[in-house]
Amino acid sequence: MRQTDLTKIENEVLEALKEQFGEKITGHEKYHDQLSIFISGGSIFDIAQFMKDDSHTGFELLSDICGVDWIDCPDMRFELVYNFFSIKKELRVLIKTTIPDGETPTIRSIQPVYTGADWLEREVYDMLGIDFEGHPDLRRIITPEGLEGWPHRKDFPLTYEAPQFSHNKDNPPEIIK
């Protein structure tokens, strides 16, 4: 159920972002009652700062960061969804950006702006292999050290193959041979 009309408060946020960042805001979409704003990948750090500090927006809470692997579109393979919530405005806005496929897909970390992004970014790194530039401690968080591959990528096998760790790489389990 796509909608076109934004509420007054949503419009204000969108206009403030457009005024500040111009062409870096590439579009927006309203799905049911939720506003998503699409931005170009390089500007996430500045936009996060603007979202948090500026009196126009004032989104205190970074709820979530989610990575999605669109394997069929190599130009914009990884979609990152930053989920901001403003308690004052009672408004949730999803900021979406894409990263092209490559050796190590990279985006700037927003951990210096929102400390809570620390583990969220580590999880995205762990699951999708996206490198967050400027993150102070980018390690795998949930899977064990030494796991090869990125589990949430669509080309990572879902079933029937045991994961390979660095310690059993030369002697893979029976099931793979």
């Binding site: 989610c66 999605v68 692997d69 969804v81 969220l120 999880e123 949430h152």
Partner: peptide, 12 residues
């Protein structure tokens, strides 16, 4: 589901 992301309150 193409992707199901859970925002776990315990983790955060």
């Amino acid at each position: 589901p193409y992707r199901m992301r859970v925002r776990p309150p315990s983790l955060i």
